[in-house]
């Protein structure tokens, strides 16, 4: 069996296996798996509206995935995407609300930039602590998530005079697109997908084409050799977290300026940042891989919303089924070993 064939077969077989086990679970809990999966399919591809909403759901997953993957490629484990996303969300919404008479070509970029800067700042702190004091970034980023959640909640209350919502952003800061909405039967699909795809290119370009990318990767693999080669190891660690944070901040901007058009007080985490870890790992931490990972995640997450309505499968079972599908895709490595063993045995005979 050729490598190429295995590369195509592994994800395909993984998805099928995941669907099969998911079907068994629906069967055992007394629901019709065919009906369930039909509902999932319709939820994702059923009509043009569903497709628009699916793409909208994928958008922040791409950026959250990039934020994890970028840090990972430089040897850092960014668990703080959630917090970086939340501060980005608030910053974009605040800029969107606070200025009312700016033209769109200034207001929108400003709001997007604010989100990136806020996320970058939230990445900068753990980067600095890691570089200068060797504090492990996993601990700091986890704590920064909580700080982000409660600080933004307090800020939202403050700017809304005790309310729980910033109010709707000005039209001039919105990523909403009448054109895309028109195409998709008035889904909430917005221009953010273009920003997300642009960032996929940016990540690839930085890592594969720039001097900075060369240094970031070298530091990620071997700090001692990087120092020997005259690289500034601390600067590269901080820079990596800053860029990763900016990606995550942009994911927040997608929610603030695109999907919701406001920021509200949150009772808990959005989950997008944590799912970003899985998205990055599914995509093997490559930019294009992240797009595929995010597509799988986003499509399943959005499409599954249709399963309770159309097939009567309870939300909890739906979550288990989705988790199982993702589990099988993520454990593709095991499957790969298995396939390679079969093929090597065949060749031996």
């Amino acid at each position: 069996m050729s490598n190429r064939l295995i590369n195509i077969l592994v994800p395909a077989v993984s998805v099928v296996l995941g669907l099969l086990v998911g079907a068994l679970i629906m069967l055992f809990t007394g629901y019709d798996p065919i009906e369930g999966y039909a509902a999932l399919w319709n939820g994702i591809f059923g009509d043009i509206y569903a497709i628009g909403e699916t793409i909208r759901q994928i958008t922040p997953y791409i950026l959250a995935g990039l934020a994890v993957a970028f840090a990972f490629r430089t040897g850092l484990f960014n668990i703080g995407v959630e917090g970086q996303l939340i501060v980005g969300w608030f910053a974009a919404a605040w800029v969107g609300v606070a200025f009312t008479d700016l033209p769109a070509f200034i207001h929108l970029p400003l709001a997007v930039l604010a989100a990136a800067v806020a996320g970058a700042f939230w990445g900068f702190i753990p980067g600095l602590l890691k570089a200068k004091l060797k504090v492990h970034e996993v601990i700091v980023t986890i704590m920064m998530n909580y700080i982000a959640l409660f600080v933004t909640n307090a800020l939202i209350r403050y700017v809304s005079d005790g309310g729980d919502n910033t109010g709707r952003i000005a039209e001039s800061a919105s990523l909403g697109s009448p054109f895309l909405q028109g195409l998709t039967d008035f889904s909430r699909l917005h221009y953010g997908i273009l920003i997300a795809l642009a960032m996929v290119f940016v990540m690839w370009f930085i890592l594969e084409k720039t001097k900075t990318g060369f240094e970031l990767k070298a530091v990620g693999f071997n700090q001692n050799a990087s120092e020997y080669a005259g690289m500034n190891v601390s600067r590269n660690i901080i820079l990596s977290m800053v860029i990763a944070g900016a990606f995550a901040g942009l994911a927040g901007a997608m929610e603030a300026l695109g999907t919701f058009q406001y920021a509200n007080v949150k009772g808990g985490f959005t989950g997008i940042g944590f799912d970003g870890i899985a998205v990055a790992l599914l995509g093997a931490n490559t930019p294009l891989g992240v797009v595929f990972g995010a597509t799988l995640f986003g499509a399943l997450q959005y499409g599954s919303l249709n399963m309770p309505n159309e097939a009567g499968v309870p939300v909890e079972i739906v979550s288990i089924v989705i988790a199982i599908i993702i589990f099988f895709v993520a454990s593709g490595y095991v499957l790969r070993l298995f396939l390679e063993k079969i093929s090597s045995k065949k060749e031996a005979k």
């Binding site: 001097k211 060369f214 070298a218 071997n222 001692n224």
Partner: peptide, 21 residues
Amino acid sequence: HKHGLVLDFPIGHNIALQTYY
């Protein structure tokens, strides 16, 4: 292995390690 090479880089990248910039 500690200072001389980035073992997970191609050998070509390693050869450029002092002049890449």
